[in-house]
Design a binder for these strands. Sequence first.
DNA 1: TTTCACATACGTATTTATACGTATTTTTTG
DNA 2: CAAAAAATACGTATAAATACGTATGTGAAA
Lengths: 217, 217
Amino acid sequence: MSKPIEVAIVDDHTVLREGLRKLFVEDQKKRFEVIGDFGNGSDFLDYLKKKSCDVVVMDIHMPIRGGESTVELIHKKIPDVSVVILTMNTRNYMMEFMVKLGVYAYLPKESGSEEIKNSVLSARDKKMFFNRLLTAEKYKLIKNGRKEPSGLTLREQFITSLVASGLNTVEIAEKINLSPSTVSKHRENIMKKTQCSNIAELVTFAYQHQILELTPR
Amino acid sequence: MSKPIEVAIVDDHTVLREGLRKLFVEDQKKRFEVIGDFGNGSDFLDYLKKKSCDVVVMDIHMPIRGGESTVELIHKKIPDVSVVILTMNTRNYMMEFMVKLGVYAYLPKESGSEEIKNSVLSARDKKMFFNRLLTAEKYKLIKNGRKEPSGLTLREQFITSLVASGLNTVEIAEKINLSPSTVSKHRENIMKKTQCSNIAELVTFAYQHQILELTPR
DNA sequence: TTTCACATACGTATTTATACGTATTTTTTG
DNA sequence: CAAAAAATACGTATAAATACGTATGTGAAA
């Protein structure tokens, strides 16, 4: 092992950042160097303007700038930075979205330490890391482009999930860096395709097509 | 400070358990002793059959046995164990549910280290710990009694179910022979009570409170 | 009995969603 | 490469929801 892998951590959960940091710092083989941890995507992107980073371990759900738009920006502007997603959002459409943006691993939050370390090693080498959530089979399916059972495109599914989780058009536009007009047009198309005539019906549609998940109580 | 507080950690996120453990173990004043960490509620309940514990820091969303039923069982059978909730489920109904089961703190996942430690100290002394999510005001409101689990009157629940199933104000008025103004006022009250800020959130609320049922496809 | 929660009802101003049309750019696919 | 599909964006008009205030009748509980 020549030089340690420069790892960044992006998650709004303070304790989890600490846990990840510890995991990398205390690696027996000294393979990692944590170059920073950040509470949102925005801070990390600021960091990247000045300094470098090999692999970033990132959550999706964050305030200010969520994982979606952060990964999108990294993918477009700084493709050298490899992304590993570590999240409790295990929905298929999100995984698909992230895989298409070139992330190298998609880990559920109950992943063990070794799994996380190995995914970072894979990502450093620009190699896909597979696990129970993102299997090689699923990866192939996504890459070979399959038809969505819901009839919605990926973008549409994504916006559906945001509408159904209670954001309005302007909030969605801000969240994923689009013009409100565009979001509005997507919503129009979504309503037509799903044959929903209002938001309430769309939320039910989202639950029934696993675009949203009902957290059991 | 006589003897250290026996703290247990229950969360399905491995890295987060590590982070919490570190936080308690590395306390300057040696006030805590982590007596175990568990990946689900079931394992923790098993532990409690044999050994003791002062305070448990617990997530809600977990496989096998989630926080809801775990806290419910602790509350009924082992009320000596104080519970601190640390979660990303910031929904009011969940907070209300947990407060009614006697948890001493309800922390969002972005809480800082000191906040978490202080909440455990409070819980050890059987004192409520308040923060931006669970304020003293909210706590009073919950304690001084909303009756319905949903907080809604029967009429309001009925109208909620109609709104959530996709009817608009005029359609609802026609369906149950009311003036649209009345329906509108009910809707206003419903939104206030449920603290929903739009229809999408209300639909989710309806599913979560069994006001609506999701028919499997 | 009188207070209180609930259900009823109206008015009004503001915000948000919906439903059209149009058009350019990007990505995918045959 | 060419065609098709998807994603982007704007304008404009109408419909609906939302958030206030106010008021009245009714039945149950303190």
